[in-house]
């Protein structure tokens, strides 16, 4: 499996690209940017973007969508039915999304924003801004912060400790690390 990430200059967001090594249908998660570097990775590996997964509708996660839609015609998946004017497949808790060789599970984790969701691919968790290494995403008020924490505990901390975490910002982590060391989850 090709696993590639790039730091977006818009909002310093992590953009993730996943695709089969033999080439074929690829998935982009939170395209805050889609520049020539990312395009070269896609094309040089004989990939075509068939799915775009959005963890929440902040600009840092969606800005590159405009470029992607000019080159490919991917299905967009998010909590909303429209992202930047493009039609999106509305997803909810525990929905399964089939993207080429991969099946993602949707896990709602509201709090940072009302439309925050995480995506699970086998033992990988793409957590957007809901869960970051040693932190959680900013929340507009105490209620939203408490909502983030409770949804993370209910939806993510139930998985095996070896699950890998790929957040929207900052370094990767692991569920065992967050359970032991994230001050917000103690």
């Amino acid at each position: 499996m090709i696993f590639y990430s790039q730091l977006s200059s818009i909002g310093l967001n992590n953009v993730y690209l996943i695709g089969p090594e033999k080439g074929g249908e690829a998935v982009v998660i939170d395209p805050g940017i889609f520049d020539t570097k990312l395009l070269e990775v896609v094309e040089n590996n004989h990939l075509s973007i068939s799915c775009v997964l959005i963890t929440h509708s902040h600009e840092a996660c969606t800005s590159g969508l405009k470029t992607i839609m000019k080159i490919y015609q991917p299905e967009i998946y998010s909590y909303r039915q429209e992202v930047l004017g493009f039609k999106s497949n509305k997803v909810r808790d525990f929905n399964k999304i089939k993207c080429g060789d991969y099946e993602f599970e949707v896990l709602e984790t509201p709090g940072h924003t009302g439309d925050s969701i995480c995506y699970r691919l086998n033992n990988y968790l793409f957590t957007g801004d809901a869960l970051l290494a040693g932190s959680i995403g900013s929340a507009p008020d105490d209620f939203s912060k408490a909502l983030t924490v409770s949804s993370l505990k209910e939806k993510l901390l139930i998985f095996d400790e070896n699950f890998l975490i790929f957040p929207g910002h900052g370094p990767p982590s692991k569920l065992s690390i967050e359970k032991k060391l994230n001050p917000h989850l103690q």
Binding site: S5, L7, G134, P171, P172, S173, I177
Partner: peptide, 27 residues
């Protein structure tokens, strides 16, 4: 880059003159 050292004990070691970007040294 994007390397994870969280929860580790690092003693008498040197990282001098390195690029250590977006890495996880939590705890």
């Amino acid at each position: 880059r994007n390397a994870v050292y969280a929860g580790s004990k690092i003693i008498d070691s040197s990282f001098n003159s390195s690029e250590i970007t977006i890495c996880n040294f939590l705890g």
